[in-house]
Amino acid sequence: MFEYWGVSEPAVLLADAAPAAPSVRDLQERIRQMQTTKLETRSLQTSPALAPLLPGGALKAGSAYSVEGSNALVMALMAGPSAAGAWCGVVGLPDFGAEAASRSGVDLERLVFVPHPGDQWLTVVSAIIDVVTVVVTVAPPRLGDALAARLAARIRQREATLIVLGGWPQSDATLRITESTWGGIGEGHGHLASRQVTVNAVGKGFMGQKRSARLWLPDASEQVRAVEPAAVPGAVPAAVVAPVRVPRGWGAGRVFADAQELAG
């Protein structure tokens, strides 16, 4: 429950400037934008719940993201662009749940599957990148850095977005579910109904910081949304950043609130 507060993390630069953190972060963002060597890339429409977890607040055309161990998170990422009319491709994932994808907002008419690319993985992914906006895939076991770099160049050129399930050397952000709690199911009764997760995001796009957010994935009405911080008096916004010192006893209140939300 507490690991995402990152108390044990080595204090980063902003650790002691917690109250002023947002403004400092804004300034840093501006400096980064002014110093950036490449042109500003196009943003794709992104589900608002996931925006705090992505560098720049949205999926970027020409970038790669990696998601570890959660198809549901991948679907939540795809839902935004798909709803905006983008085509999505899923390569090398024979177990990708189409119904869940459809229910999380991905348009099945604009979703293509290549479940078994076999040893033609690179060719297939390159061909799909040429025509499709969001490509979801899993990296083959032995993928050299050179190949990854070639693929990254291709993504940039075609303005596609790559979402890799598992590790990827060039990813802008890596999203991982660190904690997940299911509601609606008990010891032999009920059924899976809703889930609250804590998603951690790390990556080069965050300037060495770590972000995390609590999400409903999905909530009882199958929507992906942020867990409202209003439920917890005095809580920091969901896009919690950095190691802030948490007053004692505060965490207990949070846990209590969680329990209430789940029960509700």
């Binding site: 293509v112 290549v114 033609q120 025509v131």
Partner: peptide, 23 residues
Amino acid sequence: RIHHGLSRVQSLLGHGAVMTAVI
């Protein structure tokens, strides 16, 4: 454009290799 790209993959892997899903 999408159709051309996907047909290319199909000619590479076979007719049933590129699919769309229906619930």
